[in-house]
Design a protein around this nucleic acid. Structure first.
Lengths: 104, 104
DNA sequence: TTGACATATCGTAAATTCTCGATATAATAA
DNA sequence: TTATTATATCGAGAATTTACGATATGTCAA
């Protein structure tokens, strides 16, 4: 967990929005999980295309944003068929809250 | 308080170090408050020159870093004579801890 | 005043980030 | 197989950030 990479990832309006949307995915992505096989659920996960549509940025940009946030530890992903589902890594957010209380 | 400006300010190793040093100024800046008039104390505050010396960056760079962190709300400053004392604005750090627990 | 010092601001080249379109890869469907 | 769809990666121009030296401003002491 590199704090600086986390802060760089957080230094962008669109990326910050994506994180907020993924805090309440059912609210911001109504058709959630539409492509998943029956019985499988990626709790809190949303596929790249849905995120892109909402973010109003190009496909490559959104893909890179998501990858960047995953590398920073803010997101994690699961692939199902041709879809990659991204969801928040809540551990990192708790860790950040703690970081500001004690480490920095 | 603009979260993005805070995160940008935190996206740099030197600036992050300065914040950590100012968390325990008496530990990292032994000759603290040397220039202050008798009876006046800028609790937790350290002058630009002392910070520059420790940060090993140019005077202009450090001055701009400090200004940037002040604008972001991470620092506050008091001027005494020709010296400007910077110290942490702890409110912002508590606010950040809370931000990661609830807002984002 | 003038000089010396602390800090702030300006102007900049170099490095990095942003964001895109083009293209590659991977999975599915026909 | 081939076509289609979803996502990832590549390459690049524009925009921003970095970090500096030079210079300006502000304060004090002689």
């Amino acid at each position: 967990m590199e704090p600086i990479n986390v802060f760089k990832a957080l230094s962008n309006e669109t990326r910050l929005n994506i994180l907020k949307w993924l805090k309440e995915p059912e609210k911001h992505f109504p058709k959630q999980g539409a492509h998943l096989p029956k019985g499988v659920s990626v709790k809190g996960g949303v596929c790249v295309g849905d995120i892109q549509e909402k973010a109003q940025a190009s496909q490559s940009t959104v893909s890179q944003y998501l990858n960047m946030m995953q590398n920073a530890g803010l997101l994690e992903s699961v692939r199902y068929g041709q879809w990659t589902y991204y969801r928040r890594n809540e551990e990192t957010f708790s860790w950040l809250a703690e970081y500001f209380k004690t480490e920095i």
